[in-house]
Design a protein around this nucleic acid. Structure first.
Lengths: 337, 337
DNA sequence: AAACACAAATGAATCGATTCATGTACGATT
DNA sequence: AATCGTACATGAATCGATTCATTTGTGTTT
């Protein structure tokens, strides 16, 4: 059997209370005891039992992160940022992927509640306000990630998607495009509707006669992007848009692939293309992809930091952190000639 | 305060033992009691305290997964597969990213040990055999992922990288290439050396006068791939290889980007290119990328299943599961003309 | 020498779920 | 009527770390 704190105490010739103090508040213990206890720990290969610790002290060393789409490099980066910050505090990130599925989302929240995690980061899909309220009643705080908390009941860390959508389309208009299509969906995802809303604002603000249409997809994936691209090419040429704004880079990369005819890229000469997220593959695409950069890692770090601050001081009122996206101009939106 | 099992017992008018039985072995409890207990649980919003459960029963509902490179879509898929299987068993995956850093790897293993996870999945970087032995001594089993366990002390689930490397280069040779460069590194990563070894086998087996050189990279990333591509173009044209085998798709996609001159792709006409992993972005690249497909999700699922079987029956002896990679031929390795 | 202050160490009580030896009730069997 | 078997239910003991009221020890002050 693994050594317990009692074994360590016996070996070091001190009481269990002292061992616990060495572990948790060494300043209150004599140097002599500290070193004896450490030696005993070393010799026995003692490892603290987190379950017992959590049970008695009520503190947990894990936070849960419920992620919308684990395949998306953007979320990979966000998780990575949260993890970086967490590891600095000796905290582990329990990670759950919902894949835009309400049942899975619910399951992970249940699991985290049983585990009594220190707190929860979540990029929500369904309407989970009630669940989060319940968690809070239990003393588990939540921070929304990549999603603004409309009513301010929870803290959030996100990027302004409306502004991002506007900037993207303004850029398309400035470079001379007039027939713009927004490619994205499903519209249950808040980021999608926000980006579209921003796009519409840009169109309305432009003095020029710009048209915008919506091409709906059923998911934000490469495959859906490619399919949407093929659908566009099926139309008579005069009905083609001259610019595409994809709701994220996965779609955009799929579109890029779909917009190849006989090995000839239509991008950017016939059709400009801009994505959202600026993931690692955007710059690396054969036609380097213009995109709206989100500080993904920073979002993760910040969300974790906010969460820890809130759990440290439960009286803190929720706050919304909003980052601004940044336009990355690359070849896929070069003006024609 | 949150309701405990005692509160539930009181409300339902039964003993705590009965409540526990309802939760864990309902067959041994009368239907009457079951329904009363369920009603009480409902009314109180009772949620089981996992810490107390783990402390007493010694069973954990989490497994740890130590991942080499969380940014890599390949590992994203593997994690996803493990998660799918786990959620089916009501188990959560604690996930830690090492980013090819020995210290981080160690940190996560410590954390998992404290948490007394049910078991550990790990795609190892450093030499962790001793750590895993120690975990086992504590009753925590480990399964190696994407890495064959040389001495058979642990179970493993992986793809035969040597065979994969051989198949990739055989394909290059069959399509008429003769000056092959292997692009990859660091060589601390076992998969890299295995793939190179396979490549060498293919060269030796070929009757033809095929040359192979090694272009080393310091990481398996898109950026490193692009840099390697630029280095190749810096050479006088007669020293160019006519085919590249990249150790993974991230490198290959970077190479693709690097091998663009004045908007003209050198791939596949001047240089053929094949990657490894067949990640989502491979098929979507502007020059669709030939690659060695690994059943990534299946690897994750299988690893988790093996782990659960072993923890259920500690007497099981370790077994090695090896999948075969599959050659996906796309435009990037088309014969010239 | 007595009184006091302070530092350090002690160990029993505690967190909440599980387990298991023991108890109870009731019908079946002799 | 006595005995037995079965089905349920009970509740005290337990897991291991933490906490805190108490004790012990040492030095200082009067």
């Amino acid at each position: 059997m693994a050594a317990s704190i009692r074994d360590v105490a016996q070996r070091a010739g001190v009481s269990v209370g002292t061992v616990s103090n060495v572990l948790n508040r060494p300043a209150e213990v004599s140097a002599e005891s500290v070193s004896r206890v450490h030696r005993a720990i070393e010799e026995l290969g003692y490892v603290r039992n987190d379950a017992a610790r959590k049970l008695r002290a009520g503190v947990s060393t894990t936070v849960g992160f419920v992620v919308l789409d684990g395949q998306n490099p953007f979320f990979g980066d966000v998780v990575r940022g949260a993890e970086d910050e967490a590891s600095r505090h000796g905290i582990a990130v329990l990670y759950g992927n919902t894949d835009e599925d309400v049942a899975r989302e619910r399951m992970y929240l249940d699991l985290f509640e049983e585990q009594q995690v220190r707190g929860v980061l979540i990029s929500p899909y369904g309407d989970i306000q009630p669940r989060l309220e319940r968690l809070r009643a239990r003393g588990i705080r939540a921070v929304l990630v990549d999603r603004f908390s409309g009513d301010g009941r929870f803290s959030s860390v996100s990027v302004d998607s409306v502004v991002g959508g506007r900037m993207a389309v303004e850029h398309l208009i400035e470079t001379g495009r007039r027939r713009i299509a927004f490619v994205g969906g499903p519209f249950e995802i808040r980021q999608v509707t926000d980006r579209l809303a921003g796009a519409r604002v840009a169109v309305e603000n432009s003095g020029s006669p710009v048209e915008i249409e919506v091409i709906a997809t059923s998911a934000l994936t490469v495959a859906e992007g490619a399919a949407a691209g093929a659908r566009i090419l099926d139309r008579p040429r005069r009905d083609w848009p001259d610019a595409l704004f994809a709701a994220n880079d996965l779609l955009a990369l799929g579109l890029l692939q779909g917009l190849v005819i006989d090995g000839r890229m239509l991008v950017p000469h016939e059709i400009a293309l801009i994505g959202f997220d600026d993931n690692v593959f955007a710059a690396a695409a054969a036609v380097p992809l213009s995109s709206m950069r989100q500080p993904s890692r920073m979002i993760g770090r910040t969300a974790l930091r906010v969460l820890l601050e809130e759990t440290a001081d439960p009286d803190l009122i929720p706050r919304q952190t909003v980052f601004q996206p940044e336009l990355m101009v690359r070849a896929s939106t070069s003006p024609r000639h």
